[in-house]
């Protein structure tokens, strides 16, 4: 299978000359999930946003399904790419149903088709249409809102899904439910996913591949299964930072064996 997304020497510099993406070259296999880790400000979000041209690279290029993103029609490109963000960005004046069908509405599809697709997707994300279709976003919990955001992103059957810390604002239990939901959906739909996250566990659980960004550069690019045991110092440091609580609790109880991340330390 080919690459759904290819970054070719992609750079992005801010107006003040700060380099947010520093010669990123990377292929994302069709149908795979690439998890993007890194500190705040490491360029994760910027990388994601070059794919749907919310950000245009200052040099280098991004290829989507083999074609330069810059050459494609902007609106058609965006219709073909799902987009989910932490804040959900649901339209507060639209019902859940209309929110979900928005991309189809923008494409001018007839109403019955939109309604049908909305209900189908609400069902898929675990929201009973009879109960939720006519609600407004402010009548939903955080987890439900994120489900609607996910359903909206899938409405036009995109082949690429961009997710920017989609579950970052949710409590751990809701978050793990959402991760399971997404994992299930990805098994039934052929989609390439770029998942920006702060959560190592999420990256390992959902990602086929995990990359670590630092100051706009890809400093690690590993299969998810290899990430935790990578001897690379930056990766080790990242993994260790995630496991502090685990270790500290183990030390207090005294009897627990050291977790894997510490063995090497």
């Amino acid at each position: 299978m080919g690459a759904a997304i290819e970054f070719r020497d992609t750079c992005f510099a801010t107006g003040e000359g700060r380099l947010l993406l520093d010669h990123v070259s990377l292929d994302v296999e069709e149908g795979s999930v690439l998890a993007v880790l890194g500190r705040s400000g490491s360029g994760k979000t910027t990388l994601l946003r070059t794919v749907n041209r919310m950000v245009e690279p200052t040099s280098g290029e991004v290829l989507v399904r083999g074609q330069r993103a810059g050459d494609l029609d902007l609106i058609a490109l965006r219709h073909s790419i799902g987009y989910v963000i932490q804040e959900t960005g649901l339209f507060p004046h639209f019902t859940v149903e209309r929110n979900v069908g928005l991309v189809l509405e923008a494409e001018g599809r007839p109403r019955p088709e939109r309604t049908h697709r909305s209900h189908e997707l609400l069902q898929a994300v675990g929201l009973e249409p009879a109960t939720y279709a006519s609600r407004y976003p402010h009548q939903l919990s955080g987890g439900q809102r994120q489900r609607v955001g996910l359903a909206r992103a899938l409405a036009a059957r995109p082949s690429i899904l961009l997710m920017d810390e989609p579950f970052g604002a949710l409590d751990p239990l809701t978050r793990s439910e959402m991760q399971d939901l997404l994992k299930g959906l990805l098994q039934s739909m052929q989609m390439t996913v770029l998942l920006v996250t702060h959560d190592l566990d999420e990256a390992l659980y959902l990602g086929d591949r995990v990359i670590l960004l630092d100051q706009g550069r890809v400093i690690a690019d590993l299969r998810a299964a290899e990430f935790v045991d990578s001897p690379q110092p930056e990766v080790e440091a990242y993994v260790r930072a995630h496991r502090r609580g685990e270790r500290s609790a183990a030390n207090h109880s005294g009897a627990q064996p050291a977790p894997p991340a510490e063995r090497r330390g």
Binding site: N52, M54, L74, I75, A76, L77, R78, H79, I81, Y83, I85, E87, T88, G89, L90, F91, P92, L102, V103, A106, R152, A153, L162
Partner: peptide
């Protein structure tokens, strides 16, 4: 809310 505008653009509204 900027996230609403952001999503409106990203989902391909003209």
């Amino acid at each position: 809310d900027p996230s609403v505008i952001e999503v409106a653009r990203a989902l391909g509204l003209t």
